[in-house]
């Protein structure tokens, strides 16, 4: 049991936790956070895979993760923006009905 293997399994577990959160959590922001946790899990798995051979570090998964991180931020920002806009509409309609 090398530490890379340990980290790979940890990544998978984080993915599972995130998936559970996406399905079960109720608030949209929690769902977004859960998606991000899933992402962190996959990234960890990839990076642990790159380190399987203790002598060689494979840079390709690192590049994939870098790309993935930027894409994750982009998706998160869009989802948060949509959430805030829905909230804004709800709030203004509430104030009108008062």
């Amino acid at each position: 049991m090398t530490s890379a293997l340990l980290y790979a399994i940890a990544g998978l577990a984080l993915f599972a936790i995130g998936f559970f959160g996406v399905v079960v959590a109720s608030h949209v922001m929690r769902k977004i956070l859960a998606l991000n946790v899933m992402g962190v899990g996959i990234f960890m798995f990839l990076i642990a895979c790159a380190k399987r051979n203790p002598l060689v570090v494979d840079p390709l998964p690192h590049a994939m993760v870098l790309t993935g991180i930027v894409i994750a931020v982009a998706g998160t920002a869009l989802a948060l923006n949509l959430m805030v806009r829905i909230h804004h509409i709800d709030q203004s309609s509430q104030e009108q009905s008062k």
Partner: peptide, 9 residues
């Protein structure tokens, strides 16, 4: 990830 040698990431 620093532990795993991925300093860029």
């Amino acid at each position: 990830w620093g532990r795993l040698g991925a300093f860029d990431v």
